[in-house]
Nucleic acid binder design. Sequence first.
DNA 1: ATTATCTATAGATCTATAGATAATGC
DNA 2: ATTATCTATAGATCTATAGATAATGC
Lengths: 234, 234
Amino acid sequence: MVAQHPRPSARVGRPRALGPSESQLSPRDEVLAAAAELFTENGYAATTTRAVAERAGLRQASMYHYFARKEDILATLLESTVEPSLQLATALLARSEADPAARLWALAAADAALLHRGLYNLGALYQLPEVRGERFAGFRGARAELRAAYGELLHLIAPDEPGRELRCDLLLGLVEGGVAVVRDRGRGNGDGDGAGGGYGTAEVGAAVADAVLRLAGCDRAAREAAALAGRELA
Amino acid sequence: MVAQHPRPSARVGRPRALGPSESQLSPRDEVLAAAAELFTENGYAATTTRAVAERAGLRQASMYHYFARKEDILATLLESTVEPSLQLATALLARSEADPAARLWALAAADAALLHRGLYNLGALYQLPEVRGERFAGFRGARAELRAAYGELLHLIAPDEPGRELRCDLLLGLVEGGVAVVRDRGRGNGDGDGAGGGYGTAEVGAAVADAVLRLAGCDRAAREAAALAGRELA
DNA sequence: ATTATCTATAGATCTATAGATAATGC
DNA sequence: ATTATCTATAGATCTATAGATAATGC
C-alpha cells in the first residue's frame, strides 16, 4: 500500500483500455484500494473481481497479474491492517520502564484510530466467516499476537482480577466492535465518504482508549494520567 | 422460530425426496435454523440457497415456498435476534423505581447471553454490509431502538459525562463485538458445536454486563450491588 | 525481450420461476 | 380442492485461464 511508480509516463506494457491511471498509486495498490472500499461497502463475497478491477481502472482479467486469487487480495488487506498495531504493541511491551496503563492507552488509541481512519472499515471484516479459511492463517496469527499483547498489558495493570482471558476478549471486542459501530452509525444514510461519525479519528481513539482503561479497572485519576503519558509513547 | 407442527404424521403435501424430517420444527423453522448455522459459519453471500434447503431436508426450490427471496431469510433471523432484547429493554425502561445501574446490568447480561447462546452467532452478522439494504430497514430500526434504550439507561447513571453518543456506540460495540470475539475464539479450531469458548452463557452475560457498568463509570461496590439487583429484574 | 495489459471464453455456479405430482381433506 | 413438495431449467452471473497485443528496453 505504499510503493509508488517511478515514472508517471513512459510506462511499459500495453496501455489500459480505460485510459491511464489518475492516481499516483502503483497498479497493485490501486487494486488494493478499490477492493478495500468495495469489500467494506458490499461485503467480500458480494464483491466481484470485475467490480474491483474496474474501479482500479483495469479489465477484470488484468487484476490476476497482481493477485492469483480473490482471497489473496483480502488476505493482503487484513494483514496490512493488523501489522502496524502489532508492531506498536511489540514496541510498547518492551518499554517496561513506562506505566502499563499509559502503554495500554497508547496501544488502544492507536489501534482504534487506525481502524477508524482508513477509507475502508477493514475492522468490520475481522470477524468475517470467510476469514476462517487456511489462506488467512497469517492474519489470524498476527491478530492473536495483538490480542496477547493487550492481555499482557492488562495483566500488568490488574494482575489479580479473575477471568483474565474473558476480559481480554471483551477488550478486543470493545476496540474492534466499538469502532465498527461508531463508523457504521456515522455513515448512516450519509454519502459514504470519509471516516464516519462526525467524530474525529483522534477523538475516537481517545474515547476507545479511555473505555479500555475503564475495563482494566483504572479510576479517573489513573486514566487521566495514563492518557497524558500515553500520548507521549506513540 | 417456535411453532411446532401439530401432527408429526398425517402430513399434507407431496412427501420429501430426502425422507421426512427428524426434527420437531416446522419446515419454515427448519429453514431458518439451517440458514442461521450456515450464514454464521460461511457467511451470507457465500451460502447458497441449495445448501440451506438441503440442510433443512428440502430441495433447493422448495425453500421458496416459505421465503420469496434469500434476503427474507436473513431479515427474519436478524429481527428475531434483536426483538427479545428490545422487548426487555422497553420493559426495563418502564421500571423507573429500580436502580438504573441494575437495569443496565440486566439488559446487557440478557442481550449478551442471547447473542452468546444460540447455535448460531447472529451477532456477528449485525455489521454485515449486506444488512445495509432496504430489506433490512426493520432490523436496523429495532437495533437503533435498542441502542437508544442503552443510551437512556447510561444517561440515568452518568448524566454529566460528555461524549454521550460516542460512549453509547462503544457500549453497543462492547456487547456485540465482545460476544463475537468470545465465541469466535472459543470455536477456534474446535468442532463447531455448542456456544463457544468453554465459557458458560451466564458467565459471559455477567462478564459483559460488568464491563458495561465499568464503561458507565460504576465503581466496584455499585457494580456488585447492580449485579445482585439486576438478576432479580430479568 | 520483457512487461502490463487486453480480448475471449470455459466451466461452474446460483437464484428464482414454471409447472408437475403425490399426499390429505372434503 | 388444497397443500407441500418435487423436477427441470432459464438466465444471469462469476472466477480463473489461455493466448494475443501494444508498449518500452536493449
